[in-house]
């Protein structure tokens, strides 16, 4: 690993000031992504600013029944907190189905939202990769792309976003609160994740030194019966081939409210808005679910080894909606 400077800070302001003042520095929270990528030579900071002492670990209800989660709350604490398991089961499940117990004990929620793709060409530090070295090309387009995205891709990048929790968060319209050199702001989570487009190296609309301080999840009537399904080769400790966060509210046989998001198939945690629009107000039938799922995947750009994700994602959506309608997992 490259030589590193290290400093530990205890307030948000000093953290932001420290990183903001030094273009070669970055925040260190749980380290599960950052330490790994530094060792691989993919991430190349000179200085780590350790933010683990910041008071950003709360998990609490907001006044309107939503959630406020501190950026440094650990995945395992959030997953098991009663506020989350009771009102937002899909979020709890998405966290528990991610990584391993050890990693969940380490990884922070803010870090989870920012985790980097597992694309092997990105991680190997030598292959052409527009995300790692802009302008060098994308090795995955015609390479081993079984794990890659079919939605939100561009000719510059098809790397999958690996977060599970992010998928539940986009389904629930979470809001990311940040503090940066230019002050504090709130970013709707769907805007927090950028599509790769022509600049896959830019993944979030954050300026250097801007720190996630918390995540707010607004209340949603259907959230209490939400669920998260994750499908993968292994039964644990693996990123998703396809995952689905789903919540559905049916009144008199018609879809009154539906939230649907996909993991494993998108370059960002993928809110399935096409399917939601198709379903809302219509009948809650298996055929309607299948039609909506197919509609969601219509813009998909499958590649040689990941074409299976298109039918798999559709079937997973139908299953998730059916189970959510029948009262959860």
């Amino acid at each position: 690993m490259r030589p590193l400077g290290y400093t530990r800070v205890s307030t948000v302001d000093t953290a932001v000031a420290a990183v903001g003042a030094d273009a070669t520095s970055t925040f260190l929270a749980g380290g599960t992504t950052e330490v790994d990528l530094i060792r691989l030579g993919v991430s190349r900071p000179d200085v780590l600013v350790d933010i683990n002492s910041l008071p950003l670990k709360e998990i609490a209800y907001t006044n309107d029944g939503g959630l406020r989660i501190g950026a440094l709350a650990r995945m395992s604490d959030v997953a098991r907190s009663p506020e989350v398991t009771y009102n937002f089961p899909a979020l709890s499940q998405s966290l528990l189905l991610g990584a391993s117990e050890q990693l969940r004990n380490m990884a922070s929620m803010g870090g989870n939202l920012c985790q980097r793709t597992r694309c092997a060409y990105f991680r190997d530090a030598v292959s052409p990769c527009n995300k790692r070295e802009p302008g060098t090309g994308c090795s995955a387009l015609d390479g081993l792309n079984r794990g890659h995205a079919v939605l939100g891709t561009s000719e510059q990048c098809i790397a999958t976003h690996p977060s599970d929790a992010g998928v539940a968060m986009v389904a629930f319209d979470a809001i990311v609160h940040t503090v940066g050199p230019s002050g504090a702001r709130s970013i709707p989570i769907d805007d927090f994740y950028l599509l790769p487009g022509a600049s896959p190296d830019v993944e979030h609309p954050l300026e250097h030194g801007e720190l996630i301080v918390g995540i707010e999840v607004p209340p949603a009537p259907s959230a209490r019966r939400s669920l998260y399904l994750k499908f993968r080769d292994r039964q644990s400790y693996e990123f998703a081939l396809v995952s689905v966060a789903a919540a559905i509210e049916v009144r008199e046989g018609r879809v009154a409210d539906v939230r649907l998001a996909l993991g494993g198939v998108g370059t960002k945690p993928w809110r399935a808005r096409r399917a939601e629009v198709a379903l809302t107000g219509g009948p809650a039938t298996p055929q309607a679910f299948a039609n909506a799922a197919a509609h969601e995947l219509e813009p998909a750009s499958p590649r040689r080894y990941n074409a299976f994700k298109v039918p798999m994602a559709q079937r997973a959506m139908v299953r998730a909606l059916t189970r959510a309608m029948n009262g959860g997992a």
């Binding site: 597992r118 092997a120 190997d124 090795s139 080769d233 292994r234 400790y237």
Partner: peptide, 29 residues
Amino acid sequence: LLEGNQMDPRLGRWGARNLGEYLVPVNAD
């Protein structure tokens, strides 16, 4: 069910070079 490695013929390198990519069973499997 799980184990296999594949060459990327363009690069002439194995696709999987770590235990996150080359899948061996975990307890739950």
